[in-house]
Each structure stands twice: as C-alpha cells, then as structure tokens.
Design a protein around this nucleic acid. Structure first.
Lengths: 368, 368
DNA sequence: CTGAAAGCGCTTACAG
DNA sequence: CTGAAAGCGCTTACAG
C-alpha cells in the first residue's frame, strides 16, 4: 500500500527485500558440525549413524551442533563412500503413472519400500521402448539399489549388464524377453479362460473377443485363454467374433457397435450374445456401445481387469479382476529379498485372477 | 531332470552354477575408461559431458572404451562435485499415489520434468503429518533440486530452512501454513458456489452439503463457497442439511441415507431435494445411497471433483471438475522457473474449476 | 588441446 | 574412546 503511494520508497524497499540479493544460506556439512561441536568429523559421523563408543558429553555436543546448524546429512556423498554403495532408492518403470493399474502397483511398492526407508523413483513409458531404456539408464546412473520394470520393449537383453553389476531386477505385468530374471505376472490365460467358461455356463455359444494390440504379450495370453476355453467347451472359434488391436475406448466402442449391428445381440442373427473385453479401456468402450444400442441388459459382458465404479453401473459389470497392488507388493518383496542376498534362480510368479460376478456376466442369451 | 536322478551331480552342478559364487562384476569408472583409452580422466570427463576441445581421435578412443566397458557415469558423484550441485531429480509429496487425483497430478509433473531430463522421487503421505515431514527430509537428504508438496500438516514452517538453502518449493492442492511460498490451488470456494448456483437455477431450495473432515482447508473453502452461494441466492442455511467429517464412501452413504430418510427426497418433507457432495469418495457414497433408495433420478446431485465413468452411470453424474493434470503441470513449470533463477515473490495460482453438467445436476425438485 | 592436483561430503581402515 | 589420513567417482581450477 505504502509502496503504491511512493514509488521511490517502493523501489528501495524492493531492492532491499529483493530475494535475489539475499544469497542462499549454504548447507551445513559434517565439517561444520565437527567444528562447532569441537570434535573430529569421524565423531560426528559416529553420532549421525548411531554407532556407539562415543562419550555422552560428545554425543550431546554433536547433537546440539546438528540442531543449531540444521544439519542434514548428504546421503549421496555417504552412499558414494560407503562400501555397500546403497542409495536406499529403487527405480520403478511403469506403463503410465496416471492409470489405475500402474498407480495401484506403484503404491504397493511404495508401502513395502517404506518399511525399509527406501525411496521410489518412478517413471512412465507409455508403451515406448525408447522411454523404457532411457528411464532405466537414468535410474542406474543414479545408482538405484534395484529396479522394478513393466517391460514394453521386445527385448530386455540390454539389462543384462545391470544384473551382472548386482542390481536386482524384478519385472511386473509382462514377462521380459531375452533375459532370465524374476517376474510377477497375472495368470492372463487362465483368467481369460474363466471369463469364457462363465459365459458358456450361462448358455452362451457365440462369445465375442475384443482384444488389445496383438503384439502385446498379455493380450496374446488372454487370447490364448479365450481360444483354449472355447475348445474345452466344444465351441467353434468364429473369426467374425474376434477383433484385435483395440487400444482406446473409441476403438472398442466402434468395434462393439459393428459386431452387434452385424447380427443383433438378440441371438437370432450370427452376431455375439456375449462379449469378453480383454482390457480395461476396451471394456469401457464396449459398455458405451452397449448402452448406446440399448443392449446392455441383453448382451452379456465380462471385462478383464476390474475398474472403479464397476458396481455402480447398470447392469453392474462382471470382471476378471487382476490385483495390481498384490503384484506390486510381491515384486517389491522379491526385490528386497534379492537385495538381502538371495541369489537363487530367477522366479516366475503367477498371480491368480478373480472372477467377480456382478450382473453383466450372468445375463443369459435371449431365447429365440 | 538329471538333477533329480543323481542328487550328487545335482549338488555339484548347483555349486558350480551357484550365482552366489559368481562375484558381481564391478562397474567401470571414469578411471577405468581413461586407462583403456590411454587418456586422462579429465579428457574422458570432457567427452562424457560433451565439452569440445578434444581431438576426434581421442573422442573415438574414449567412446570405444565406454562402449567396451559399458561405462555408466555416476550422477551422484558428479552432482557432489559439480558447482551447481544439481541432482536432476525432484521430490513429489502427494496424498496417495494410488488415487486418481494424485496420480494425474504426478503424471503431469513427470511430463514437465521429463522435458528437462529430470527424474521424480514420489511418496504418499496418507493425511499423516509425520509422513509429510519424513518424506521431505528423505528427499532433501538426497539433495533433490526441488520439491512439490501437497501439504497435510498444520504447519509447513519446518520447510523454511530448505527454502533458505535454495531448494525451490511449490505447494499444490492446499495452501501451506506458516510459510510464504508458491502454491497452485483449485478455486474451491468458487467451484462450490457454482454447484449451488446450478442447483438453485433448476429450482432447488433445500440443498444438502456433504463435506469432508472439517479441518481440511479445501473442505473449509468448499463449505464457505456453499454458504456464500446460499446467501447470494437468499436461501437459508439449514444446519440439518449440513454434514461434515465424511471421509469414506461408507460414511457418505450412511449420511446420505439418514438425510433423505429424515424428509424424503420428494420435496414434500424437510429433507433435501438436492445434494452437493464436496469430494470424490463422498460423491460415490451419495450415489450408492441414492441408488439403494431408488432416488437417483429424483434427487439432484453435483459432486466436487470429476471421476472416471461419471458419464456411464444413470443418471450421468454432474460434477464440478478440478484439473489435477493442469495443477501438476503449472506447479512443475513454476518450480523449474524458480530453478532457472526466478526469485520473484511467491505466487498463489488459483485454477478455475469447470461445471460439467451430465444429468444428475439438472434434475428439478419434485412438484408437490 | 591436455592433464595433474585438489576437493565435493562423507566413510573406511587404521593408529593411538 | 577418538581422530588424521586416504579415498569413493567425479569436476574444478589451473598450468602447460
């Protein structure tokens, strides 16, 4: 207010208050603490690291100096010199930190790491091999203690050098290619099979498959499960009911609409009477299309992967649920087991999926 | 297989293949590269950092050695010695990495940071002040270049030392207390006002407020907006229509049920004819309750904060949408602006909310 | 254009 | 119980 009344005074005040003129206060170092406490750096180091064999008086003097100087140890410097070299940080490379699957997984990793006071570096790859490699490199250049990776590239052989250097590595969601390493996966094939069996149990014989990009290993496994279950049920595999390469909600909605228009969902044409959507976004696209066509209560639907609010929709959406949090937890525990020295052969852990019947997967085919 | 036939052979094979017997290959250092290339460490350093003034022959020799040794520079060591001290990593302290708001925000921060080849350390506080401080401390001990914090504690004064040491700090979602610093917030009060005005426009006079823990600043601001809008509309503030301290879906569902049973949602009692749910989980709880009571098409509802699938529910759910991605982007850009030397006075950026009318917010009160 | 010496902040490996 | 010297992997500040 005063400043506006008197520009000159304002300028002066600003110059004086100009934060750029105030140099940053340098951080106190171990040496500063030692000087203030009147002891050697080694003694301060002992106190900071909780080693014993320091007289109480010196401990107090050091503690006081630490408080007064607001000393924060530099963990990078400490890790550099330490024989273990541990940085107490791990890197997590995921598909997209914003999607529910990745973020639930990340959160579970965090919870396990947190118990050990280990921090998380995280990044998204967006289905881009270059990003995967760039992130891994960036993490290793910072000497993370371990890596959890949801691989997207076609070859993870480039990680061999890291493994040989002793950096534990656990893959999640998708199996690594060209490298033998720990991994934690959903049992995609069995899960897809469960969906088909459920739909067949209700009486469906024309079950559509809506799948993600055919090159993705998880998509392939789910399609394999679909095929195998049809076989087990003695149902024909009708190519007209199979659509691959759907990667967005819109893709899936369009494909669903086309499929149902071709035969009607009433069972009286050659269209499907039930739909298995092999992935989250595809499921949502299918729901959108079913709603638009007014067929949501007459065509059965089971989606792979659960999603929030699935039980608030009408009908409630039945799903084959994965457990990303469990995947993250198991992966992190395996990683720390390796960090603790376990050098047994690489493990491949398959996590079971859960069939969650809420309504849409129980709709029977219309009786002609 | 053979191993099972001959346990001794197996043991032998295991001993020979025992990975614990294989020592990890130590990582190559600058010194190793220099030795192999026949140059000094300084020359290697120049090549690694892309400085010029090195003869092409030496550059080639160094590059060759780097490739052959699979050399990865140690960025921690480099940062320790560098005058800037930059670690090319920032810390992000959020409410819960698994919730959609936090994860969308984090992802946006990542995208901005990624352009500058800066990495993200991230952690969840779960509404716990201790965790907030512990995470901040852990991040600063690793000398992150900057901090983005969604504060939960009642006082952020403890961060003053960090700011004075030159670590830029940007708060998101909630305003810091006891510290003047940059922050990026949703305009909660105006957003809540928009909701009430919309409902009043449709004819509602009895609008319930379902709120989060009363101590949370954002909840307070939303309640303030609710009150102010009622005043502007000349509507009475009926304490019977106000419920605070809802923090879970179940809390909210119970409160909604109680509220509607008390007067019926039909407008003929003294219950509400419309509901303003001030937070995501509360909105979902309210929807659950409305559906259970069969009132979802007769009681109007507007939720604060958008959520996935809101437009697949019946009726579609109207919301006051925040923009967590924009919040993250703006916060990150502000942070990097500070890192680039901007030492202007702290900014407080208010992000506008958007009213998204999808159906539930347009339901008129029943005519008695 | 190139490199030897010193030092970032800390811990190790000793010696007293 | 305590501390002086050396060194982790790198860059700085020089000197040639």
């Amino acid at each position: 207010m005063t400043e506006h009344a008197d520009p000159a005074a304002h300028a002066d005040a600003a110059a004086q208050a100009d934060p750029a003129a105030v140099p940053y206060r340098p951080r106190a170092t171990l040496r500063d603490v030692a000087a203030m406490a009147g002891v050697s750096m080694k003694t301060v180091s002992r106190v900071v690291n909780g080693e014993n064999g320091v007289t109480p008086q010196k401990v107090d003097a050091v503690r006081l100096a630490i408080t007064r100087l607001d000393y924060r140890p530099n963990l990078s410097a400490s890790a550099l010199r330490r024989s273990s070299g541990r940085t107490a940080a791990i890197g997590t490379v995921l598909e997209d930190l914003a999607n529910p699957f990745s973020s639930a997984l990340l959160r579970a990793v965090e919870d396990v790491a947190n118990e050990r006071r280990v921090l998380i570096l995280a990044g998204s790859v967006d289905e881009d091999q270059q990003r995967e490699r760039a992130l891994v490199r960036a993490f290793t250049e910072r000497r993370v203690d371990g890596l959890i990776v949801a691989p997207v590239g076609e070859d993870q052989g480039y990680l061999r050098a890291e493994m040989e250097a002793g950096t534990p590595l656990v893959f999640v969601d998708r199996q690594p290619q060209g490298l033998l390493a720990d991994c934690v996966l959903s049992d995609n094939e069995a899960g897809a099979g469960q969906a088909v069996h459920q739909l067949a149990d209700v009486g469906h014989r024309r079950i559509a498959y809506l799948g993600d990009l055919a090159g993705i290993p998880t998509a392939e496994q789910r399609f394999a499960g679909y095929q195998r279950a049809l076989l087990e049920r003695g149902l024909p595999l009708d190519p007209a009911l199979v659509v691959h390469d759907l990667h967005t909600v819109d893709d899936a909605a369009r494909a669903t609409t086309a499929l149902l228009r071709s035969g009607g969902g009433s069972g009286d044409g050659d269209g499907p009477t039930a739909v298995f959507a092999s992935q989250n976004l595809v499921t949502i696209g299918a729901i959108t299309a079913l709603q638009d066509l007014g067929l949501e209560t007459s065509v059965a639907l089971i989606g792979f992967d659960d999603f929030p609010l699935a039980d608030l929709l009408k009908p409630r959406v039945s799903v084959i649920a994965q457990n990303p949090a469990e995947m993250g937890r198991v992966a992190a525990e395996l990683l720390f087991q390796r960090l603790d020295g376990d050098r047994g052969r690489p493990q491949r852990i398959l996590l079971p999926t859960t069939t969650v019947l809420r309504g849409s997967g129980e709709i029977p085919p219309a009786v002609p």
